[in-house]
């Protein structure tokens, strides 16, 4: 009986003009990892790569963010130029070449807060420049909370305080799933930056927050960073 009645012709039925979303439950779910110890660059890189892989395989996987510090090292993006490296990089264990992110050479070291994001931009906006601006905005908001005025420089990526660049950004993306992210100098030693032309920018001075806020530590900034990252990308923490 109901075969006849409810086995309706294979034509869609009607209803009001409504737009029902796909399930949005998974969209905002994320993990944030905050390792206490310094994390070698390669270790953090591998974490991101394997998380990215998880997202390739299942689009509903939670996203992930790492907030951490690296021991001293130099990294160069795939498209970066060796000419911005002013020391002999050959056989230098501190030097890591061919990192799959955009941008030139950069320097990581303790006292610098690094934030890595494995986000699926399909859940936000598939627009790389938009994403870079959002990362900058996290840092600008953070500086504002600390009473500093962070600003962008037209045509460049990163965040400046006055004439000093305090935040560097480099992103790698595959199928719109990101890795790498941003670094913010808090109270790190700036000597190491003289060994390179940071981000390939001649004549740009590197700064750190403790120049304006004496005594500020990474541990003061980290909770604010975490909160602002969660807010900006509307992340809901997985337990």
């Amino acid at each position: 009986m109901d075969e006849q009645l409810h086995g309706l012709p294979p034509k869609p039925l009607e209803i009001g003009n409504l737009d029902t979303p796909y399930s949005s439950e998974y969209i905002s779910s994320a993990f944030i990892f905050e390792p206490e110890d310094l994390v070698p660059f390669h270790t953090a890189w591998n974490w991101q790569k394997s998380w990215q892989k998880k997202l390739f395989e299942n689009i509903e996987e939670p996203q992930a963010v790492w907030i951490l510090q690296h021991p001293s090292c130099y990294t160069l993006g795939k498209g970066g130029s060796n000419s911005n490296v002013l020391f002999d990089s050959r056989n230098n264990p501190l030097f890591i070449d061919h990192v799959d992110r955009g941008g030139e050479v950069t320097h990581h070291l303790p006292g610098q807060l690094v934030v890595y994001f494995v986000l699926d931009l399909h859940r936000y906006k598939t627009d790389l420049h938009w994403y870079l601006r959002e990362l900058e905005q996290v840092v600008i908001d953070l500086l504002q909370e600390l009473g500093l005025c962070g600003k962008r420089v037209e045509g460049l990526t990163g965040v400046w305080c006055g004439s000093h660049k305090v935040c560097s950004i480099g992103v790698g993306c595959r199928r719109w799933i990101t890795q790498h992210g941003l670094s913010l100098n808090i109270d790190c030693d700036l000597k190491g930056f003289s060994e390179i032309v940071p981000c390939g920018l001649h004549g740009h001075k590197i700064g750190r927050l403790c120049n304006w806020l004496p005594g500020i530590r990474v541990s003061d900034v980290q909770p604010i960073m975490k909160r602002l990252v969660l807010e900006r990308f509307r992340l809901r923490l997985k337990k």
Binding site: G79, L132, G158, V171, C173, R174
Partner: peptide
């Protein structure tokens, strides 16, 4: 499969 890597600004994208 990724065929090339394109950079725009400070972001790299694997193009498949």
């Amino acid at each position: 499969e990724s065929v090339l890597v394109v950079e725009s600004d400070k972001a790299d994208m694997d193009v498949e």
